[in-house]
Amino acid sequence: MSDKQKDFELIEKFLNGDESAFNLLVKRHQEKIYMVARRMLGNHLDADEVVQEVLLVLYKKLNTFKFESAFSTWLYRITMTRSINFLKKRAIKNLLSIFDLKKERSYNQNPAEIIEGKDQFELVEKLLKKLPPKQREVFILKNFENLKYEEISEITGKSIGTLKANYFHSVNKLKELLEKHYEN
């Protein structure tokens, strides 16, 4: 049975009242959700919040899934939408300086322990944070999730031409940022 069919089977079971099918579905995809959110948001705590939001959307909206495209496409779309909304909210809050001190977070705090590849991961995470969200989105989906432009277009709703232009800008910008990083 293919991954796509296995997902469909679990969704159908969940929609028929089998709660354990939801657990299995989440376990199959939770790493993907977390890593996309983490690379989009640049820190663990925000990514974790988005992961919980995504699960809530899944839980409440799985009955609207059409079984036309792969479940992962739908999941990427939800994760990206939640992440970009989170970025906007965070930016507006920071801009208007209304971040409550009680809620201010230590972004160095990292309860999700990185076991391997920490240095390179943190370097790239730092560079990605400096890209505009649109460029970050296409870069992550293409480079880390290995998706084709056609699939990214289905997820983001943007034309392939726009995505290619955004991707080109993102790679060039990252290259410049890395050069500056090594200069310093």
Binding site: Q30, G117, F121
Partner: peptide, 23 residues
């Protein structure tokens, strides 16, 4: 250098405890 850093960052592994806690 950029592609080498990107490839290096793909090998990241997050602790299983965190993934266990999500659900």
């Amino acid at each position: 250098k950029l592609y080498s850093s990107i490839d290096g960052s793909k090998n990241v592994k997050i602790s299983d405890d965190y993934y266990e806690s999500i659900l």
